[in-house]
C-alpha cells in the first residue's frame, strides 16, 4: 500500500472509532456534540504516558481509554440532567472547556502541541478498529443494547417495562467515552504529535454527522457513515472547498430524502432475509 493510502486508512480508522464513541450515547437517545473533548483527553493521556512516563503502547492505549471513560462517567451525571437542545449545548460547552484547559497547560506544550514517542502502524490501528466495531455490534445484540434502543425510542415506556434508564444512559455515555479515548490514543500514536487545535468543534460536528447520516438504528450506521464521508472526498477530484460544499449538500439532501440515516433496521433485516430465504428454498426443494 502506498504511503498516501496508508494515511487515508489511518484517518478512516480514527473516524470510525470516534464515530462509534458518538454512536453509543446516540443509540440511547443522547446527542453528543463534544466528541472532540473526549478525544483530546485520550490523545493527551496516551501521549503523556508514552513520552514522559515511557510506557509501551499496549499499556498507553488501554489506560487512555480508561481515563477518558472515567471522565465521561463523572460528567455523565450532571450531563444527563439535560436533554435535547440543552444536551447538545452542554456537551459542546464541555468540549470547549477541555480545549480551553489544554491550550493553557504548559506541561502539554500549550498551543504549540505535544510530541508523542511511540509510533503505531496500521497493523496496530486496524485490528483495534475492527475490535471496536465487533464490540459495538456485539453490545447492540445483548440485553443492554436492547435497553439502549428502548430508552432511545421512548424513555417512559422503557422504564415502565423495567429498564433502568438512568443506568443505561450513564453506561452508554461512559462506554462512548472509553471508545473516544481509544480514538484519541490512535491519533496520538499515528501522528506522533498532539495539537489541541485539531480537536475543535469541527471534529465534533463532522463525527456527529457521520453517525446521524449513517443511521443510529443499527451498529452498522456509523461504520457506513464514516467510510462514506472519509472516502468520498478522495474520489471527488475537485478542490478541497468544493468537497465541503458537496458534503454539505449531501447532508441537506439526506435529511430531506432519508432522515433516518443510510442504514436502517429494515435495511439490515432485508439484507439478512436475502440469505435466509435462499437457505429456506434450498430446504424446500429437497
Amino acid at each position: 500500500m502506498s504511503g498516501y493510502w496508508t494515511g487515508i486508512v489511518a484517518i478512516l480508522c480514527f473516524n470510525i472509532v470516534v464515530a462509534y464513541s458518538v454512536f453509543l450515547p446516540a443509540a440511547a437517545g443522547q446527542l453528543n456534540l463534544g466528541a472532540a473533548g473526549f478525544v483530546a483527553i485520550g490523545a493527551y493521556t496516551s501521549g503523556y504516558l508514552s513520552t514522559d512516563v515511557g510506557l509501551a503502547m499496549w499499556l498507553t492505549i488501554p489506560i487512555a481509554a480508561l481515563a477518558t471513560g472515567a471522565v465521561a462517567f463523572l460528567i455523565s451525571f450532571p450531563m444527563l440532567r439535560t436533554r435535547g437542545v440543552y444536551m447538545v449545548l452542554a456537551t459542546l460547552a464541555f468540549a470547549e472547556i477541555v480545549q480551553g484547559i489544554y491550550i493553557n497547560l504548559e506541561i502539554f506544550g500549550a498551543a504549540a502541541g505535544y510530541p508523542v514517542a511511540a509510533f503505531a502502524e496500521l497493523d496496530i490501528i486496524a485490528p483495534i478498529t475492527i475490535l471496536v466495531i465487533l464490540f459495538v455490534v456485539f453490545l447492540m445484540a445483548t440485553r443492554f443494547g436492547l435497553s439502549m434502543r428502548a430508552v432511545h425510542d421512548d424513555e417512559r415506556v422503557a422504564s415502565l417495562f423495567g429498564v433502568n434508564t438512568r443506568m443505561t444512559k450513564v453506561a452508554a455515555f461512559t462506554l462512548g467515552g472509553v471508545i473516544a479515548g481509544i480514538g484519541g490514543a490512535i491519533w496520538a500514536h499515528q501522528f506522533n504529535y498532539v495539537e489541541i487545535q485539531h480537536f475543535n468543534i469541527l471534529l465534533s460536528t463532522f463525527v456527529l454527522l457521520y453517525v446521524l447520516i449513517g443511521g443510529t438504528q443499527t451498529p452498522y450506521g456509523p461504520l457506513v457513515g464514516a467510510v462514506f464521508f472519509t472516502l468520498l472526498p478522495e474520489f471527488l477530484r475537485v478542490s478541497n472547498e468544493w468537497r465541503f460544499v458537496i458534503f454539505g449538500v449531501i447532508i441537506v439532501l439526506m435529511m430531506v430524502v432519508r432522515p433516518e440515516g443510510l442504514v436502517t433496521r429494515t435495511l439490515v433485516e432485508r439484507f439478512y432475509g436475502l440469505f435466509w430465504r435462499r437457505g429456506r428454498t434450498a430446504v424446500a426443494d429437497r
Binding site: 478542490s239 472547498e241 460544499v245 458534503f247 454539505g248 435529511m255 432522515p259
Partner: peptide, 22 residues
C-alpha cells in the same frame, strides 16, 4: 420532534462557509 432540522442547518453552515471560501 427530531434532530433533523439541526443536522440540516449544520449542512447549510458547511455549504455557506465553503461557498464563500470558493
Amino acid at each position: 420532534e427530531h434532530a433533523l432540522p439541526l443536522v440540516s442547518s449544520l449542512g447549510f453552515l458547511i455549504i455557506f462557509e465553503h461557498l464563500v471560501l470558493v
